[in-house]
Lab assay of single mutants.
Amino acid sequence: DHWEIRVGDITIHLKDVDEEIIRWVEEALRNGDDLEEIKRWVEEVLR
């Protein structure tokens, strides 16, 4: 699977990601969370 999350001008590409993570990231972006923080979290989860 390949996911693209778009929020404003930001697009995040994710592969082999659980839908729950996608929802979490979308929510975090909508809440204005720091992008670097989100990326770190996702990388942590995917490890």
Rank of each mutant, 00 (worst) to 15 (best):
L35M: 11
T11G: 03
V25P: 00
K15W: 06
I5A: 00
V45T: 07
N31Q: 09
L35R: 04
L46K: 01
R47P: 06
H13L: 14
E44C: 07
V45D: 01
D9H: 06
D34Y: 12
L29M: 09
D34V: 15
L14E: 01
H2G: 10
L35Q: 07
D9T: 04
V25F: 06
E36S: 06
W24I: 08
D34L: 15
K15P: 03
A28E: 01
D9A: 11
G8D: 07
R40F: 03
D1F: 13
D18S: 13
T11A: 11
R6K: 13
H2N: 12
R6C: 03
G32M: 11
I10W: 13
G32H: 10
D33K: 14
L35K: 04
E20G: 07
I22W: 11
V25S: 00
W24E: 04
D18E: 07
R23W: 06
R6L: 09
E20Q: 12
R23I: 06
E26L: 14
R23S: 06
E4R: 01
E44W: 03
L35S: 06
I5R: 00
D34S: 13
H2P: 11
L29Q: 01
I38E: 00
E37A: 14
H2C: 10
L14N: 01
I5W: 08
R40K: 14
I12R: 00
I12S: 02
R6V: 13
R30V: 09
D1K: 11
V7T: 02
D33C: 15
D34F: 12
N31H: 07
G8W: 05
R30N: 07
I38A: 01
E36Y: 05
E4S: 03
D1I: 13
G8L: 09
E43N: 04
I21M: 09
W41D: 00
W3R: 04
R47C: 11
I10G: 04
A28V: 10
H2W: 15
L14T: 02
W3H: 07
I22M: 09
H2D: 12
V42F: 06
E26D: 06
D33L: 15
W3D: 03
V42T: 01
E43M: 09
V25C: 01
G32W: 11
E44T: 03
E44K: 03
R30K: 11
I38P: 00
W24H: 12
V45I: 13
E27R: 10
A28Y: 04
T11D: 04
D1A: 12
K15R: 12
L46D: 01
V42G: 00
V7A: 04
L29S: 01
E19A: 11
V45N: 08
R30E: 08
I21R: 02
E43K: 02
I22G: 04
V7K: 05
D9Y: 06
V17S: 05
E43D: 11
H2L: 11
R40W: 04
H2T: 12
R40Y: 03
W41Y: 15
E44L: 04
I38L: 07
H2E: 09
A28I: 13
R23K: 13
V17E: 02
K15M: 11
R30L: 12
E27V: 09
I21C: 02
E37H: 08
E20I: 09
V25M: 04
I5G: 01
W3C: 04
W3Q: 04
